[in-house]
Amino acid sequence: MSKMKNCSRLDYELTNRKSVVVENGFSLKRDGNVGSSDSVEPQDADYSHSLPSLSDEIVHRILARVPVSEHWKLCFLSRSYLDLLKSGELYKIRKEIGIEEPSVFMLACGEPHWWTFDRHFNSFRNLPALPSDPCFVAGDKESLCVGTHLLVSGKEIEGVVIWRYELAVNRWCKGPSMIRPRCLFASANCGDFACVAGGIAMGTIMEVLDSAEMYNPKNKSWNPLPKMRKGRKLCSGFYMDNKFYVIGGQDEDGNNLTCGECFDVSNKYTWELIPDILKDAPTSTSRSPPLLAVVKNELYSLEASSNQLKVYLKKSNSWKELGKVPVRADHSRGWGIAFKSFGDELLVIGGAWNSYAGHGMMICTCSPDPHNDKELRWRFLGPGRNRISHFILNCSVMLA
């Protein structure tokens, strides 16, 4: 406990230095943001004279309750805390005691690096530079969070690759690649693992895929899943009722698919077809994949053509309108908008109704009630003093 009481004094000392650098690329700059550095200068502090020492187990459970956005401060307390953070053990304890804190990882148009925000968007920092080639940096990318990994898929000069950011060590690593590299695929965080399905094969033949795979963050490996009933590209995925769903998209002839299908992760044998789950969806081929998010096991969609928020009624296989969102999803036909599950809330990031191209983004959340017809109440947040483009290239939410 004495170690935690000294945090306020430590904060004062650190924020009055020009820069303090610790192991593994973490550094604290004068404005309080955490950056990256190649220097290594671990800081050991000894507070053992204050109170009798606690057991490691108790200390670890205390530290596990520290918000993820404050974990960088542990690096300054002692080398043992730094090693604990790098080992990933804190995140295992957090999961064991039921703490899930959403963090947002985002790449906006014109930004050279990824940003990460805490759940209140009060604390933010940029990730270390992604060490990929110029082809990957300039090209389209797709992202997915699972466990404490952020997976970013894109194309380098030599082919499709996945770069993996590991939260515990604040570092990018390459791989592992999917069994069948692809783009424009559906994906979802399914708890202890992630699933991808469909998309376009990245090879000599641009084939629309019906294959699916599962990523295990524990051993950093991909495993095959049974094939879907239909091949589809530009589709979307989500996890609900312990099932991985893939809906929408286009078939190999470019026809829009209004059906969906789901895979029960408990039996892992076959896909179940869901006819007409998107029967009222617009048919524009230049439209983005369906904008979908699951909150409290309810499925929501953001209709890009009308900016309407809708909830899926499972019993009737239909959609109910809840009202308009405060951002313009229709500005680029659904592209450049982040629409995500954010713990027990919906998160929407994009351009505001009264903003012009080049202005900063709008961030808002709400907790919709599918059984209540009252007007939606949106909570407006912001990215601090940074002016970041409202056109979001990639956005993923990590629960850690």
Rank of each mutant, 00 (worst) to 15 (best):
F136W: 03
W114M: 01
F105W: 14
N122P: 02
C109K: 07
S103N: 12
R125A: 04
F117Q: 08
S132M: 05
H120G: 07
S103D: 10
V104K: 01
A129F: 08
L127V: 13
S123F: 13
P134S: 09
S132L: 02
S103F: 10
A129G: 10
P131W: 04
T116R: 11
G110Q: 03
P131H: 13
H113Y: 14
R119P: 01
D118C: 02
A129Q: 05
D118Q: 01
C109T: 06
R125G: 01
H113V: 15
P112Q: 10
W115S: 15
D118H: 12
L127P: 04
M106F: 06
G110I: 06
G110P: 01
E111G: 06
W115H: 11
S132G: 06
S132I: 06
P112E: 14
A108Y: 14
F121Q: 08
F124A: 14
F117W: 05
P112Y: 06
M106G: 01
F105C: 05
W114P: 00
A108P: 15
H113E: 12
H120R: 15
A108T: 15
C109L: 07
W115P: 02
P134D: 09
L127E: 09
T116W: 04
F124E: 07
S132N: 04
F105E: 01
F136E: 00
W114N: 00
M106W: 03
H113D: 14
F124I: 09
F117M: 04
C109W: 07
L127T: 11
R119I: 01
F121I: 13
P128A: 08
G110C: 03
S132A: 13
P134V: 10
P134I: 10
L130Q: 00
S103W: 07
H120D: 14
F124T: 15
M106T: 13
W114L: 02
L107F: 10
R125D: 09
F121W: 13
C135V: 04
P112C: 11
F136K: 00
N122K: 09
S123W: 12
C135Y: 06
P128W: 04
F105M: 14
N122A: 06
P134N: 14
A108Q: 14
P112D: 12
H113T: 13
A129L: 08
R125P: 05
R125Y: 04
L107W: 13
F124S: 14
C135M: 06
G110S: 04
C135T: 04
E111Q: 11
S123L: 06
F105L: 10
H120S: 08
H113N: 11
A108L: 12
P134L: 07
F117K: 11
W114F: 05
S132P: 02
N126V: 10
D133L: 05
C109D: 13
S123N: 11
F121S: 15
F105N: 08
P112G: 12
S103C: 14
S132Y: 00
H113S: 11
P134R: 08
S103A: 09
S103E: 14
C109E: 13
T116H: 03
S123I: 06
F121H: 15
H120N: 15
W115Q: 10
C109Y: 04
F105K: 01
S132D: 07
F121T: 10
L127H: 11
G110E: 00
P131Y: 01
L107D: 03
A129C: 03
N122Q: 10
